[in-house]
């Protein structure tokens, strides 16, 4: 008999009860690890390769400013990642906390290789609201290094109303010692007009200051999404951009997402980009008065079983800057 008056006495019974509770919690905790548990782990590996056809990077252009010696790192068209490798681990701690770690390596040119380290922590504070914080370090040896801190809130009312607010502080130092600080507020709201239609709007701003003065930029995006009975979603979007350097652009986009099977989806996207440039320095680095580009992309997501998802992307990009490229992406996402 185990209990207050048993042969083991009160303390022994308490200890045994506690041991049973601990054992039960341990067993419960072990069973909670996995795809359906509170400690689920998701690992993503992604590799992207870009084929530039005949394109080669032009020589750097050294623009001159009255008071500051400054050499533009590259011409206007620069830094398309030729190859990019990404590893991302997402770990849940209980039902409300999620930690994400990411490392990204980009091979920009023959001499420029970028490392990006990223940590994100999110916590659900209510059933519909979560708060998150991000810390990111970017290293580009011999060019610049910087870090970014982001604080934000995400609101999800069962998908009918989605809101996201964030503010980022980005600070980078170029190899020549020039320090640039940028504040990036963003606001996004998705509202479901009815059971098959959603409207999304987003605004981002870039308020930067550094050795070369201050600059500002604003980005507005608007999306209209419609679900069709053929298990198709059609997205029409337009992105507008404007900065204090005299660059204005707009980019309309059409995307069709289709279920091929229940576990296989295909997204086909066409995007057109055009801009107007007033800055004479930039104009010296481009062909014509502005940049025009066409981008066609196919993106396949294939869920295999309950644990593995495969991502495949193919993209064709053509611009009036004599840049033509094909981009291939292969990604694996695994639920441990």
């Amino acid at each position: 008999m185990i209990g207050r008056n048993g042969r083991f006495g009160r303390s022994a019974g308490t200890v045994l009860s506690a041991a049973v509770c601990i054992a039960a919690c341990w067993v419960h905790g072990v069973s909670a690890i996995g795809s359906t548990g509170w400690f689920a782990t998701r690992v993503k590996f992604e590799y992207q390769y870009t084929d530039y056809n005949e394109y080669r990077y032009p020589d750097p252009i050294p623009p001159s400013y009255p008071d500051v010696e400054y050499t533009r790192p590259d011409p206007y068209i620069a830094d398309f990642p030729e190859t990019r490798t990404l590893v991302r681990v997402t770990q849940a701690f209980g039902p409300t906390n999620v930690l994400q770690l990411r490392y990204q390596y980009s091979d920009l040119t023959d001499t420029k290789r970028q490392n990006l380290y990223y940590v994100r922590f999110a916590r659900d504070v209510t059933q519909v609201t979560s708060l998150y914080a991000v810390y990111q370090v970017t290293e580009l040896p011999d060019w610049f290094s910087g870090y970014m801190v982001t604080l934000g809130a995400h609101h999800d009312r069962s998908g009918w109303i989605l809101g996201d607010w964030s503010a980022s502080y980005f600070r980078n130092r170029a190899a020549d010692g020039n320090l640039v600080e940028t504040l990036i507020p963003s606001f996004q709201l998705r509202y479901s007009i009815d059971g098959m239609t959603a409207l999304t709007g987003r605004w981002e701003a870039y308020w930067a200051r550094g050795g070369n003065g201050k600059s500002t930029a604003n980005v507005w995006s608007l999306f209209l999404s419609r679900y069709l009975p053929t298990q198709t979603a059609v997205h029409v979007a337009c992105r507008l951009y404007d900065n204090s350097g005299g660059v204005r652009s707009w980019a309309p986009m059409l995307e069709v997402a289709q279920y091929i099977r229940w576990n296989l989806t295909l997204r086909m996207t066409y995007r057109y980009y055009t801009n107007e440039i007033e800055d004479p320095e930039i104009k010296t680095a481009i062909e014509g008065d502005g940049v025009r580009s066409h981008s066609v992309r196919g993106y396949l997501e294939w869920q295999i079983g309950s644990d593995l998802k495969i991502h495949i992307k193919l993209r064709r990009y053509v611009s009036n800057q004599h840049v033509e490229m094909n981009t291939y992406l292969l990604g694996f996402e695994y639920m441990l």
Binding site: T50, Y76, I77, A78, D79, F80, P81, R84, L116, Q136, T138, G146, M148, T150, S168, F170, N172, T182, I184, E204, Y206, A208, S215, A217, V219, Y241, N243, G245, V247, S249, A251, Y273, N275, I277, D279, I282, V291, S293, S295, Y317, T327
Partner: peptide, 17 residues
């Protein structure tokens, strides 16, 4: 993301966000 790093004169997306 590789396009938004470039097309707007490297301003939007330059921080890698």
């Amino acid at each position: 993301d590789d396009l938004c790093n470039v097309e707007d004169a490297g301003v939007s997306g330059a921080s890698g966000e």
